[in-house]
Design a binder for these strands. Sequence first.
DNA 1: CTCGTTATGATACACTTGTTCCTGAAACAA
DNA 2: TTGTTTCAGGAACAAGTGTATCATAACGAG
Lengths: 209, 209
Amino acid sequence: MPRVSDTRSRILNFIRRFLDRRGYAPTVRDIARGCNISTPSVVQYHLNMLEEQGFIHRDPEVFRSIQLVERKREAVSRVPLLGTIAAGRPIPVPAPDSWTTTPQETLQLTGEVTQDKKDIYALRVKGTSLIDAFVDDGDIVLIQQTSTVEDGELAAVWLKNQQEVTLKKIYREKGRIRLQPANKEMQPMYFKPEEVEIQGKVIAVLRKL
Amino acid sequence: MPRVSDTRSRILNFIRRFLDRRGYAPTVRDIARGCNISTPSVVQYHLNMLEEQGFIHRDPEVFRSIQLVERKREAVSRVPLLGTIAAGRPIPVPAPDSWTTTPQETLQLTGEVTQDKKDIYALRVKGTSLIDAFVDDGDIVLIQQTSTVEDGELAAVWLKNQQEVTLKKIYREKGRIRLQPANKEMQPMYFKPEEVEIQGKVIAVLRKL
DNA sequence: CTCGTTATGATACACTTGTTCCTGAAACAA
DNA sequence: TTGTTTCAGGAACAAGTGTATCATAACGAG
Protein backbone atom coordinates (compact mmCIF):
# COMPACT_ATOMS: atom_id res chain seq x y z
CA MET A 1 0.00 0.00 0.00
CA PRO A 2 1.76 3.12 -1.18
CA ARG A 3 1.69 6.19 0.93
CA VAL A 4 -0.83 8.85 0.08
CA SER A 5 0.10 12.49 0.11
CA ASP A 6 -1.97 15.01 1.95
CA THR A 7 -3.63 16.48 -1.12
CA ARG A 8 -4.35 13.08 -2.53
CA SER A 9 -6.04 11.80 0.60
CA ARG A 10 -8.13 14.97 0.63
CA ILE A 11 -9.13 14.18 -2.93
CA LEU A 12 -9.94 10.58 -2.05
CA ASN A 13 -12.08 11.65 0.86
CA PHE A 14 -13.87 14.17 -1.30
CA ILE A 15 -14.65 11.48 -3.86
CA ARG A 16 -15.99 9.24 -1.12
CA ARG A 17 -18.25 11.95 0.26
CA PHE A 18 -19.39 12.97 -3.19
CA LEU A 19 -20.31 9.41 -4.12
CA ASP A 20 -22.19 8.90 -0.88
CA ARG A 21 -24.14 12.11 -1.16
CA ARG A 22 -24.80 12.35 -4.88
CA GLY A 23 -24.66 8.78 -6.09
CA TYR A 24 -22.34 9.50 -8.99
CA ALA A 25 -18.74 10.50 -9.35
CA PRO A 26 -17.42 14.06 -9.33
CA THR A 27 -15.70 15.77 -12.23
CA VAL A 28 -12.19 17.09 -11.99
CA ARG A 29 -13.63 20.56 -11.52
CA ASP A 30 -15.94 19.36 -8.75
CA ILE A 31 -12.88 18.02 -7.00
CA ALA A 32 -10.96 21.23 -7.58
CA ARG A 33 -13.74 23.26 -5.99
CA GLY A 34 -14.19 20.82 -3.11
CA CYS A 35 -10.52 20.57 -2.26
CA ASN A 36 -9.49 24.19 -2.75
CA ILE A 37 -7.46 23.45 -5.81
CA SER A 38 -7.44 26.28 -8.26
CA THR A 39 -7.21 24.38 -11.51
CA PRO A 40 -8.35 21.14 -13.10
CA SER A 41 -4.87 20.25 -14.26
CA VAL A 42 -3.65 19.72 -10.73
CA VAL A 43 -6.58 17.45 -10.02
CA GLN A 44 -5.90 15.61 -13.23
CA TYR A 45 -2.32 15.12 -12.15
CA HIS A 46 -3.31 13.65 -8.79
CA LEU A 47 -5.99 11.48 -10.32
CA ASN A 48 -3.38 9.99 -12.62
CA MET A 49 -1.20 9.28 -9.61
CA LEU A 50 -4.08 7.76 -7.69
CA GLU A 51 -4.89 5.53 -10.62
CA GLU A 52 -1.27 4.43 -10.93
CA GLN A 53 -1.26 3.59 -7.24
CA GLY A 54 -4.41 1.58 -7.63
CA PHE A 55 -6.77 3.64 -5.54
CA ILE A 56 -9.18 4.63 -8.26
CA HIS A 57 -10.13 3.60 -11.74
CA ARG A 58 -11.14 5.88 -14.56
CA ASP A 59 -12.27 5.36 -18.12
CA PRO A 60 -10.31 7.77 -20.29
CA GLU A 61 -12.28 10.67 -21.72
CA VAL A 62 -15.44 9.57 -19.96
CA PHE A 63 -17.05 12.17 -17.75
CA ARG A 64 -17.70 11.25 -14.14
CA SER A 65 -16.17 7.82 -14.52
CA ILE A 66 -14.06 7.80 -11.36
CA GLN A 67 -14.59 4.62 -9.35
CA LEU A 68 -13.11 3.79 -5.98
CA VAL A 69 -11.26 0.50 -6.04
CA GLU A 70 -11.94 0.06 -2.32
CA ARG A 71 -15.63 -0.09 -3.12
CA LYS A 72 -15.33 -2.72 -5.77
CA ARG A 73 -15.63 -5.39 -3.08
CA GLU A 74 -18.80 -3.82 -1.82
CA ALA A 75 -20.29 -4.42 -5.19
CA VAL A 76 -23.90 -5.29 -4.77
CA SER A 77 -25.19 -7.99 -7.03
CA ARG A 78 -28.81 -8.79 -7.57
CA VAL A 79 -29.62 -12.40 -6.98
CA PRO A 80 -32.92 -13.54 -8.42
CA LEU A 81 -35.27 -15.29 -6.03
CA LEU A 82 -36.54 -17.91 -8.42
CA GLY A 83 -39.04 -19.76 -6.29
CA THR A 84 -39.36 -22.14 -3.42
CA ILE A 85 -37.58 -25.33 -2.58
CA ALA A 86 -39.88 -27.90 -1.01
CA ALA A 87 -39.72 -31.58 -0.25
CA GLY A 88 -41.80 -33.00 -3.05
CA ARG A 89 -41.00 -30.55 -5.81
CA PRO A 90 -38.00 -30.35 -8.12
CA ILE A 91 -35.84 -27.28 -7.95
CA PRO A 92 -36.92 -24.74 -10.55
CA VAL A 93 -33.98 -24.15 -12.82
CA PRO A 94 -34.88 -21.70 -15.56
CA ALA A 95 -32.63 -20.57 -18.35
CA PRO A 96 -30.00 -18.12 -17.15
CA ASP A 97 -30.94 -15.46 -19.68
CA SER A 98 -34.40 -15.20 -18.24
CA TRP A 99 -32.89 -14.21 -14.90
CA THR A 100 -32.14 -10.68 -15.89
CA THR A 101 -35.07 -10.02 -18.16
CA THR A 102 -38.02 -11.25 -16.14
CA PRO A 103 -38.95 -8.73 -13.50
CA GLN A 104 -39.08 -10.81 -10.35
CA GLU A 105 -38.13 -10.58 -6.74
CA THR A 106 -34.43 -10.07 -6.32
CA LEU A 107 -32.12 -10.06 -3.35
CA GLN A 108 -29.50 -7.37 -3.18
CA LEU A 109 -26.44 -8.94 -1.66
CA THR A 110 -22.81 -8.04 -1.29
CA GLY A 111 -19.92 -10.20 -2.39
CA GLU A 112 -19.55 -10.90 1.30
CA VAL A 113 -22.56 -13.15 0.98
CA THR A 114 -22.41 -14.25 -2.64
CA GLN A 115 -18.67 -14.81 -2.35
CA ASP A 116 -18.33 -13.17 -5.75
CA LYS A 117 -19.74 -16.23 -7.42
CA LYS A 118 -21.48 -15.93 -10.75
CA ASP A 119 -24.63 -17.67 -11.95
CA ILE A 120 -26.23 -17.91 -8.57
CA TYR A 121 -29.87 -17.77 -7.64
CA ALA A 122 -31.89 -17.98 -4.48
CA LEU A 123 -34.69 -20.21 -3.34
CA ARG A 124 -36.94 -19.87 -0.33
CA VAL A 125 -37.29 -23.03 1.70
CA LYS A 126 -40.81 -24.24 2.31
CA GLY A 127 -41.36 -26.81 5.00
CA THR A 128 -39.04 -28.55 7.39
CA SER A 129 -37.77 -31.24 5.09
CA LEU A 130 -34.24 -29.87 5.14
CA ILE A 131 -33.67 -29.73 8.86
CA ASP A 132 -30.99 -32.39 8.56
CA ALA A 133 -28.98 -29.69 6.79
CA PHE A 134 -29.88 -27.22 9.56
CA VAL A 135 -32.08 -25.40 7.10
CA ASP A 136 -35.39 -24.29 8.50
CA ASP A 137 -38.68 -23.31 6.99
CA GLY A 138 -38.41 -19.83 5.50
CA ASP A 139 -34.67 -19.85 5.06
CA ILE A 140 -33.18 -18.66 1.82
CA VAL A 141 -30.70 -20.88 0.05
CA LEU A 142 -28.19 -19.46 -2.42
CA ILE A 143 -27.36 -21.90 -5.14
CA GLN A 144 -24.71 -21.78 -7.79
CA GLN A 145 -25.86 -23.45 -10.95
CA THR A 146 -23.10 -25.86 -11.82
CA SER A 147 -22.86 -29.40 -13.02
CA THR A 148 -19.55 -30.13 -11.34
CA VAL A 149 -19.61 -30.47 -7.58
CA GLU A 150 -16.52 -31.38 -5.65
CA ASP A 151 -16.65 -34.21 -3.15
CA GLY A 152 -17.70 -32.94 0.24
CA GLU A 153 -19.52 -29.89 -1.03
CA LEU A 154 -23.10 -29.30 -0.08
CA ALA A 155 -25.19 -29.92 -3.15
CA ALA A 156 -28.80 -29.52 -4.05
CA VAL A 157 -29.79 -32.97 -5.17
CA TRP A 158 -32.92 -34.25 -6.84
CA LEU A 159 -33.67 -37.85 -5.93
CA LYS A 160 -35.49 -39.29 -8.90
CA ASN A 161 -37.04 -42.31 -7.25
CA GLN A 162 -38.20 -40.47 -4.17
CA GLN A 163 -39.22 -37.41 -6.24
CA GLU A 164 -37.61 -35.33 -3.57
CA VAL A 165 -35.00 -32.64 -3.22
CA THR A 166 -32.38 -32.59 -0.50
CA LEU A 167 -29.32 -30.67 0.50
CA LYS A 168 -26.51 -33.09 1.25
CA LYS A 169 -22.77 -33.33 1.14
CA ILE A 170 -21.87 -35.42 -1.85
CA TYR A 171 -19.20 -38.09 -2.06
CA ARG A 172 -18.53 -40.24 -5.08
CA GLU A 173 -17.62 -43.77 -4.09
CA LYS A 174 -17.05 -46.79 -6.24
CA GLY A 175 -20.30 -47.59 -8.01
CA ARG A 176 -22.40 -45.44 -5.73
CA ILE A 177 -22.92 -41.95 -4.43
CA ARG A 178 -22.94 -41.19 -0.73
CA LEU A 179 -25.12 -38.38 0.48
CA GLN A 180 -24.01 -37.20 3.88
CA PRO A 181 -26.28 -34.98 5.95
CA ALA A 182 -24.72 -31.89 7.50
CA ASN A 183 -26.04 -33.16 10.77
CA LYS A 184 -23.28 -35.51 11.85
CA GLU A 185 -25.59 -37.56 14.01
CA MET A 186 -27.56 -38.71 11.03
CA GLN A 187 -26.64 -41.58 8.82
CA PRO A 188 -25.51 -41.20 5.21
CA MET A 189 -27.63 -42.46 2.35
CA TYR A 190 -26.36 -44.32 -0.67
CA PHE A 191 -27.65 -44.11 -4.23
CA LYS A 192 -26.74 -45.29 -7.66
CA PRO A 193 -25.30 -42.47 -9.78
CA GLU A 194 -28.27 -42.52 -12.13
CA GLU A 195 -30.71 -42.06 -9.26
CA VAL A 196 -29.47 -38.63 -8.26
CA GLU A 197 -29.43 -35.42 -10.21
CA ILE A 198 -27.18 -32.63 -9.00
CA GLN A 199 -28.91 -29.30 -9.42
CA GLY A 200 -26.25 -27.03 -8.05
CA LYS A 201 -23.95 -26.14 -5.25
CA VAL A 202 -25.14 -24.45 -2.09
CA ILE A 203 -23.20 -21.21 -1.65
CA ALA A 204 -24.86 -19.84 1.43
CA VAL A 205 -27.90 -20.02 3.64
CA LEU A 206 -29.61 -16.89 4.85
CA ARG A 207 -32.15 -16.80 7.63
CA LYS A 208 -33.91 -13.52 8.27
CA LEU A 209 -35.85 -13.27 11.51
CA MET B 1 -46.75 1.23 -10.04
CA PRO B 2 -47.50 2.84 -13.37
CA ARG B 3 -47.27 0.82 -16.49
CA VAL B 4 -44.09 1.05 -18.47
CA SER B 5 -44.15 1.23 -22.22
CA ASP B 6 -42.05 -1.04 -24.31
CA THR B 7 -39.41 1.52 -25.23
CA ARG B 8 -39.17 2.73 -21.67
CA SER B 9 -38.62 -0.70 -20.22
CA ARG B 10 -35.93 -1.25 -22.81
CA ILE B 11 -34.32 1.97 -21.66
CA LEU B 12 -34.58 0.92 -18.03
CA ASN B 13 -32.98 -2.42 -18.75
CA PHE B 14 -30.22 -0.74 -20.68
CA ILE B 15 -29.50 1.57 -17.76
CA ARG B 16 -29.39 -1.42 -15.42
CA ARG B 17 -26.97 -3.30 -17.63
CA PHE B 18 -24.82 -0.22 -18.19
CA LEU B 19 -24.57 0.45 -14.46
CA ASP B 20 -23.66 -3.15 -13.74
CA ARG B 21 -21.00 -3.31 -16.39
CA ARG B 22 -19.47 0.13 -16.25
CA GLY B 23 -20.14 1.34 -12.74
CA TYR B 24 -21.53 4.70 -13.79
CA ALA B 25 -24.60 5.91 -15.57
CA PRO B 26 -25.02 6.21 -19.33
CA THR B 27 -25.56 9.43 -21.22
CA VAL B 28 -28.63 10.03 -23.32
CA ARG B 29 -26.57 9.22 -26.39
CA ASP B 30 -25.31 6.00 -24.84
CA ILE B 31 -28.92 5.02 -24.33
CA ALA B 32 -29.85 6.03 -27.85
CA ARG B 33 -27.12 3.84 -29.27
CA GLY B 34 -27.93 0.96 -26.96
CA CYS B 35 -31.66 0.98 -27.59
CA ASN B 36 -31.68 1.68 -31.33
CA ILE B 37 -33.09 5.15 -30.89
CA SER B 38 -31.95 7.54 -33.53
CA THR B 39 -31.82 10.76 -31.60
CA PRO B 40 -31.10 12.03 -28.08
CA SER B 41 -34.33 13.97 -27.92
CA VAL B 42 -36.42 10.83 -27.84
CA VAL B 43 -34.32 9.45 -25.02
CA GLN B 44 -34.65 12.74 -23.20
CA TYR B 45 -38.40 12.54 -23.62
CA HIS B 46 -38.58 9.06 -22.14
CA LEU B 47 -36.18 9.89 -19.34
CA ASN B 48 -38.45 12.76 -18.34
CA MET B 49 -41.38 10.36 -18.31
CA LEU B 50 -39.45 7.79 -16.27
CA GLU B 51 -38.51 10.46 -13.77
CA GLU B 52 -42.12 11.63 -13.48
CA GLN B 53 -43.18 8.05 -12.87
CA GLY B 54 -40.58 7.67 -10.17
CA PHE B 55 -38.36 5.07 -11.77
CA ILE B 56 -35.23 7.15 -12.04
CA HIS B 57 -33.76 10.31 -10.62
CA ARG B 58 -31.64 12.81 -12.48
CA ASP B 59 -29.84 15.98 -11.52
CA PRO B 60 -30.62 18.55 -14.20
CA GLU B 61 -27.77 19.45 -16.51
CA VAL B 62 -25.44 16.98 -14.84
CA PHE B 63 -23.86 14.42 -17.11
CA ARG B 64 -24.29 10.78 -16.24
CA SER B 65 -26.45 11.55 -13.24
CA ILE B 66 -29.17 8.99 -13.87
CA GLN B 67 -29.88 6.94 -10.77
CA LEU B 68 -32.25 4.00 -10.47
CA VAL B 69 -34.70 4.50 -7.65
CA GLU B 70 -34.99 0.73 -7.27
CA ARG B 71 -31.34 0.64 -6.25
CA LYS B 72 -31.53 3.20 -3.50
CA ARG B 73 -31.82 0.46 -0.89
CA GLU B 74 -28.55 -1.11 -1.77
CA ALA B 75 -26.79 0.86 0.90
CA VAL B 76 -23.93 -1.22 2.22
CA SER B 77 -23.24 -1.08 5.92
CA ARG B 78 -20.27 -2.50 7.70
CA VAL B 79 -21.16 -4.86 10.52
CA PRO B 80 -18.41 -5.60 13.04
CA LEU B 81 -17.58 -9.24 13.66
CA LEU B 82 -16.98 -9.01 17.38
CA GLY B 83 -16.00 -12.53 18.26
CA THR B 84 -17.32 -16.01 18.68
CA ILE B 85 -20.37 -17.38 20.36
CA ALA B 86 -19.73 -20.69 22.07
CA ALA B 87 -21.50 -22.87 24.56
CA GLY B 88 -19.58 -22.11 27.72
CA ARG B 89 -18.70 -18.50 27.11
CA PRO B 90 -20.78 -15.38 27.56
CA ILE B 91 -21.50 -13.28 24.53
CA PRO B 92 -18.93 -10.53 24.17
CA VAL B 93 -20.78 -7.27 24.32
CA PRO B 94 -18.38 -4.37 24.07
CA ALA B 95 -19.29 -0.74 24.25
CA PRO B 96 -20.97 0.41 21.06
CA ASP B 97 -18.50 3.25 20.51
CA SER B 98 -15.65 0.79 20.29
CA TRP B 99 -17.35 -0.87 17.33
CA THR B 100 -16.38 1.81 14.91
CA THR B 101 -13.03 2.76 16.36
CA THR B 102 -11.30 -0.56 16.78
CA PRO B 103 -10.09 -1.91 13.49
CA GLN B 104 -11.47 -5.41 13.37
CA GLU B 105 -13.02 -7.78 10.94
CA THR B 106 -16.15 -6.36 9.43
CA LEU B 107 -18.84 -7.76 7.22
CA GLN B 108 -20.12 -5.66 4.38
CA LEU B 109 -23.81 -6.34 4.15
CA THR B 110 -26.77 -4.80 2.40
CA GLY B 111 -29.95 -3.69 4.08
CA GLU B 112 -31.40 -6.82 2.56
CA VAL B 113 -29.54 -8.77 5.22
CA THR B 114 -29.31 -6.29 8.07
CA GLN B 115 -32.92 -5.29 7.52
CA ASP B 116 -31.81 -1.71 7.98
CA LYS B 117 -31.42 -2.27 11.69
CA LYS B 118 -29.00 -0.19 13.68
CA ASP B 119 -26.64 -1.25 16.46
CA ILE B 120 -26.06 -4.71 15.14
CA TYR B 121 -22.99 -6.86 15.35
CA ALA B 122 -22.00 -10.31 14.21
CA LEU B 123 -20.68 -13.36 16.02
CA ARG B 124 -19.24 -16.50 14.58
CA VAL B 125 -20.65 -19.67 16.08
CA LYS B 126 -18.17 -22.11 17.51
CA GLY B 127 -19.32 -25.63 18.20
CA THR B 128 -22.62 -27.38 17.76
CA SER B 129 -24.32 -26.19 20.90
CA LEU B 130 -26.90 -24.22 18.98
CA ILE B 131 -28.17 -26.91 16.69
CA ASP B 132 -31.56 -26.77 18.38
CA ALA B 133 -31.84 -23.35 16.75
CA PHE B 134 -30.69 -24.83 13.42
CA VAL B 135 -27.44 -22.94 13.82
CA ASP B 136 -24.38 -24.92 12.90
CA ASP B 137 -20.72 -24.61 13.68
CA GLY B 138 -19.22 -21.77 11.66
CA ASP B 139 -22.44 -19.92 11.08
CA ILE B 140 -22.56 -16.18 11.56
CA VAL B 141 -25.25 -14.74 13.78
CA LEU B 142 -26.34 -11.12 13.43
CA ILE B 143 -27.45 -9.69 16.72
CA GLN B 144 -29.14 -6.43 17.51
CA GLN B 145 -28.11 -5.13 20.86
CA THR B 146 -31.31 -4.37 22.67
CA SER B 147 -32.68 -4.90 26.13
CA THR B 148 -36.29 -5.22 25.04
CA VAL B 149 -37.23 -8.40 23.24
CA GLU B 150 -40.77 -9.11 22.19
CA ASP B 151 -42.36 -12.41 23.11
CA GLY B 152 -41.68 -14.99 20.44
CA GLU B 153 -38.55 -13.35 19.10
CA LEU B 154 -35.35 -15.30 18.89
CA ALA B 155 -33.06 -13.96 21.57
CA ALA B 156 -29.49 -14.51 22.56
CA VAL B 157 -29.76 -15.55 26.17
CA TRP B 158 -27.12 -16.06 28.84
CA LEU B 159 -28.12 -18.71 31.38
CA LYS B 160 -26.41 -17.71 34.59
CA ASN B 161 -26.61 -21.00 36.44
CA GLN B 162 -25.54 -23.10 33.49
CA GLN B 163 -22.96 -20.52 32.45
CA GLU B 164 -24.14 -21.07 28.93
CA VAL B 165 -25.42 -19.10 26.00
CA THR B 166 -28.35 -20.18 23.85
CA LEU B 167 -30.53 -18.89 21.08
CA LYS B 168 -34.15 -19.41 21.98
CA LYS B 169 -37.55 -17.93 21.38
CA ILE B 170 -38.50 -16.11 24.53
CA TYR B 171 -41.90 -16.02 26.18
CA ARG B 172 -42.67 -14.27 29.44
CA GLU B 173 -45.14 -16.26 31.50
CA LYS B 174 -46.38 -15.66 34.98
CA GLY B 175 -43.43 -15.91 37.33
CA ARG B 176 -41.22 -17.65 34.84
CA ILE B 177 -39.65 -17.36 31.44
CA ARG B 178 -40.14 -19.98 28.79
CA LEU B 179 -37.35 -20.58 26.36
CA GLN B 180 -38.61 -22.34 23.26
CA PRO B 181 -36.18 -23.95 20.83
CA ALA B 182 -36.65 -23.17 17.16
CA ASN B 183 -36.75 -26.90 16.65
CA LYS B 184 -40.38 -27.66 17.33
CA GLU B 185 -39.65 -31.24 18.28
CA MET B 186 -37.68 -30.16 21.31
CA GLN B 187 -39.17 -29.29 24.63
CA PRO B 188 -39.19 -25.79 26.06
CA MET B 189 -37.18 -24.90 29.12
CA TYR B 190 -38.37 -22.78 32.02
CA PHE B 191 -36.35 -20.37 34.10
CA LYS B 192 -36.86 -17.77 36.74
CA PRO B 193 -36.54 -14.26 35.36
CA GLU B 194 -33.40 -13.59 37.36
CA GLU B 195 -31.69 -16.67 35.95
CA VAL B 196 -31.64 -15.47 32.37
CA GLU B 197 -29.94 -12.47 30.87
CA ILE B 198 -31.07 -11.28 27.45
CA GLN B 199 -28.11 -10.17 25.42
CA GLY B 200 -29.83 -9.19 22.22
CA LYS B 201 -32.14 -10.11 19.44
CA VAL B 202 -31.13 -12.37 16.57
CA ILE B 203 -31.65 -10.49 13.30
CA ALA B 204 -30.32 -13.03 10.87
CA VAL B 205 -28.21 -16.11 10.48
CA LEU B 206 -25.69 -16.41 7.68
CA ARG B 207 -24.03 -19.61 6.66
CA LYS B 208 -21.29 -19.44 4.06
CA LEU B 209 -20.23 -22.70 2.51
C1' DC C 1 -63.57 11.86 -39.63
C1' DT C 2 -61.20 15.19 -35.86
C1' DC C 3 -58.80 16.02 -31.93
C1' DG C 4 -55.67 15.18 -28.24
C1' DT C 5 -52.19 12.39 -26.48
C1' DT C 6 -48.15 9.94 -27.09
C1' DA C 7 -44.07 8.67 -29.49
C1' DT C 8 -40.40 9.55 -32.86
C1' DG C 9 -37.08 12.31 -35.56
C1' DA C 10 -33.60 15.88 -37.04
C1' DT C 11 -30.97 19.69 -35.90
C1' DA C 12 -28.78 23.05 -33.32
C1' DC C 13 -27.17 25.58 -29.21
C1' DA C 14 -24.71 26.37 -25.10
C1' DC C 15 -22.44 24.51 -21.60
C1' DT C 16 -19.63 20.86 -19.39
C1' DT C 17 -15.62 18.29 -19.11
C1' DG C 18 -11.28 15.53 -19.92
C1' DT C 19 -7.12 16.65 -21.53
C1' DT C 20 -2.90 18.94 -23.01
C1' DC C 21 0.74 22.29 -22.99
C1' DC C 22 3.15 25.59 -20.81
C1' DT C 23 5.37 27.83 -16.71
C1' DG C 24 7.25 27.73 -12.20
C1' DA C 25 8.24 26.62 -7.34
C1' DA C 26 10.08 23.49 -3.86
C1' DA C 27 12.64 19.52 -2.26
C1' DC C 28 16.32 16.48 -2.79
C1' DA C 29 20.36 13.82 -4.51
C1' DA C 30 24.65 13.61 -7.05
C1' DT D 1 26.14 23.94 -8.90
C1' DT D 2 23.01 20.64 -11.87
C1' DG D 3 19.45 17.56 -12.79
C1' DT D 4 15.31 15.10 -11.37
C1' DT D 5 11.07 14.51 -9.22
C1' DT D 6 6.91 16.20 -7.29
C1' DC D 7 3.40 19.49 -6.98
C1' DA D 8 0.83 23.78 -8.19
C1' DG D 9 -1.30 27.19 -11.50
C1' DG D 10 -3.16 29.13 -15.98
C1' DA D 11 -5.13 28.87 -20.33
C1' DA D 12 -7.10 26.78 -24.07
C1' DC D 13 -8.86 23.08 -27.17
C1' DA D 14 -11.81 19.45 -28.82
C1' DA D 15 -15.10 16.48 -27.85
C1' DG D 16 -18.97 15.06 -25.06
C1' DT D 17 -23.46 16.18 -23.37
C1' DG D 18 -28.11 17.96 -21.62
C1' DT D 19 -31.55 20.44 -23.59
C1' DA D 20 -34.77 23.07 -26.56
C1' DT D 21 -37.30 23.65 -30.74
C1' DC D 22 -39.80 22.33 -34.53
C1' DA D 23 -41.80 18.82 -37.35
C1' DT D 24 -44.02 14.39 -38.08
C1' DA D 25 -46.13 9.96 -37.33
C1' DA D 26 -49.11 6.64 -34.74
C1' DC D 27 -53.14 5.76 -32.32
C1' DG D 28 -57.25 5.69 -29.68
C1' DA D 29 -61.55 8.31 -28.06
C1' DG D 30 -65.33 10.93 -29.26
